[in-house]
Design a binder for these strands. Structure first.
Lengths: 232, 232
DNA sequence: GGCGTCTTGACACCGAGTGTCAATCGAGGC
DNA sequence: GCCTCGATTGACACTCGGTGTCAAGACGCC
């Protein structure tokens, strides 16, 4: 559940404690439910003190959400690696797909990922923290997109929208995947989702960083007095 | 900061306490920062006990987020009221626009809304709760869309995607609006945002509730082995 | 005036999260 | 081998968010 070989021997122990902690947490949380497990319990199971728990994880939710946290930076770096000529829809779909596969695939039991995702999605507190993370990802992705397309990050709406749409797709796929107990194929789901949102992703506005603003307002700005508004 | 006339006289007092509470909370939170204010403090300022605070609001974040909470149901009911022939992009844009205007407009000081939004967006804990609310809105909106388009709510990706895109647009607009200190015109921002996402919103899939599934997969499902994946 | 309902404050309680400090352990330097 | 320095840890105390409980007061009804 970790990653690379820690170079030093001293901090291998650290890695070990961390693993022990998440192992215990995941076990207990999945078994007894989120609220029914105290941090003292998790720490005791892992053989450390409560105080030590907080030296490794910022909160009870963090232990679980951590598992998917790398995916955010994964998507971004993957996007940065895509060729510049690639249309956003393709680059984004690929980035999401690769990161998701990298998370769900790693050697051995891929159903561990499924279990974690299901736990997150059906536990309000965990889902909330997950949304928080996603929100950060969105900002990162938007920045990356802005740079990629040479748009002013704070002037153009497009990067935020595109990042949001990509993550919306990601979220919908995740939900469907977890809801089907992993039966449905993530690859196909991602494809379908991105096929839907692609028309919007590839309609990149012309407002570049140089020119102040494009002329794409065929809009129909209502006249401040909506038809049947009224109440509340 | 409330809405209609409470029919009974007995519960007018209740409304009063609620107002007093949110008033005190908003004042203090905006002044001293979210973490620097305790609930005891808020309650004391409002002249009630801490226990009473929790009889009116579920959490410290709730007092603030409550202000935007009605917007969710507002968007949904507004959407339900739109004519069925209207394409999703138009119906959604309108629903979002009306609800947003209803929130930011109400008689008198509209900058109160601005202040609240800014507080929420720049306070992580508040933003988190706000995202949580939005997540609920998304589910509601998706359900409404599925019904509206006669799609199977759990089979089709489209409703979730469309709802997500609409809220993404909403969020981007909110962010820009608050970032510009209310200078930018929400109506115009919404128009621009929805102009971008409209192509995706109006590409409604053909998979109706009756027919099992449409034939719209021109997709290009990668072959399980992405180009340059490998590490994290 | 008596009675049921609703609201409140006081109190005790739990758990998350943090600051502090002394003890411990491992890695060199001598 | 010993000593010292730094990192890690456990124990303790503390704050604060949030909840359950209960007795007391306010209000409406008969």
């Amino acid at each position: 559940m970790s990653s690379d070989i820690p170079v030093s021997m001293a901090q291998r122990k650290r890695q070990l404690v961390s693993d022990e902690l998440s192992e215990a947490a995941l076990q207990l949380l999945a078994l007894k439910g989120f609220d029914a497990v105290t941090i003292d319990e998790i720490a005791a199971t892992a053989g450390v003190s409560k105080r030590t728990f907080f030296r490794y994880f910022a909160s009870k939710e963090d232990v679980v959400v951590q598992f998917l946290a790398d995916m955010g930076t994964g998507i971004r770096t993957e996007l940065a690696a895509r060729p510049a000529e690639e249309p956003p829809s393709v680059a984004l779909r690929h980035s999401v797909w690769v990161s998701m596969a990298a998370c769900a695939a790693p050697p051995g039991h891929s159903d561990r990922a499924l279990r974690v995702v299901q736990l997150i999605l059906r536990t309000p507190a965990l889902r909330a923290r997950f949304l928080e993370r996603q929100d950060q990802w969105r900002g990162d992705l938007a920045a990356e997109l802005a740079q990629r397309l040479d748009l002013a990050p704070d002037t153009a709406l497009y990067p935020q929208l595109a990042a949001g749409m990509a993550l919306t797709a990601f979220d919908a796929v995740l939900q469907r995947w977890s809801g089907s107990d992993g039966v449905e194929d993530p690859a196909e789901l991602i494809d379908r989702a991105f096929t839907t949102i692609a028309p919007a992703l590839d309609a990149v506005p012309s407002e570049s960083v140089g020119t102040g603003k494009g002329g794409n307002e065929a809009s129909l700005s209502e006249r401040r007095q909506p038809p049947g508004a009224g109440s509340r």
